[in-house]
């Protein structure tokens, strides 16, 4: 779902290329970067991206945590894409962005599989870094996904950690960094 979205900032209207994909298929970081290079506007000076992978152990550093055999990602078609769109819109209102790609996989994923990708292009690195982190922090806590870890000992629905919650809520008080 690639769209050009208009964002209104004081005294200017800017167009941001936004592409949000929720898919079972894998993705190529290289292809996404090449595609961005083809379409990016001339004032693009910075690209920050993040790729998240499936870890093969539970979040706790605890030897009793059984090894994760499969991570299962569930979503609510339609509402999930909109929840990501809301996060991207907040980022685009906060920083001057040119291009945002968010890819989130669903279904069954094996350890070390790619699960999520965020790529942000902006004029300068501070906005690109900050917006990329902001989007990831909110994907963890506000996007409509549910993760289940399937281990030899059974299945377990993953809960948001306090650290993830704190990282997202910290943005509410942080000044935007342009």
């Amino acid at each position: 779902m690639a769209t050009k979205s208009r964002f209104y900032r004081p005294s200017q209207v800017v167009e941001v290329f936004v592409d949000i994909r929720v898919q079972a298929e894998d993705f190529s970081v290289a292809d996404e970067y090449l595609a961005l290079r083809q379409r990016m506007p001339g004032n693009t000076g910075a690209v920050a991206s993040f790729a998240g992978l499936v870890r093969d152990a539970g979040p706790a550093a605890d030897i009793r945590v059984a090894e994760v055999q499969t991570l299962y990602l569930e979503h609510y078609p339609g509402m999930t894409e909109r929840s990501i769109g809301d996060i991207v819109n907040q980022a685009a209102e906060r920083w001057p962005l040119n291009d945002v790609v968010v890819i989130h996989r669903v279904g069954e994923l094996a350890p070390l599989a790619q699960i999520v990708f965020v790529q942000v292009a902006s004029g300068h690195r501070s906005a690109a870094f900050a917006a990329c982190t902001f989007i990831m922090d909110y994907l963890k806590t506000a996007a409509i996904f549910w993760k289940r870890e399937d281990t030899a000992a059974g299945r377990r629905w993953v809960e948001v950690t306090d650290e993830d919650r704190e990282r997202a809520s910290a943005w509410e008080t942080k000044e935007s960094d342009r």
Binding site: G52, Y76, M79, H104, I115, V116, M136, L139, K140, T141, A142, A143, I144, F145, W146, K147, W157, V158, E159, V160, D164
Partner: peptide, 10 residues
């Protein structure tokens, strides 16, 4: 009407 438990993405 959808019932949504706490979300965990990313």
């Amino acid at each position: 009407i959808a019932f949504l438990p706490p979300v965990t993405g990313g």
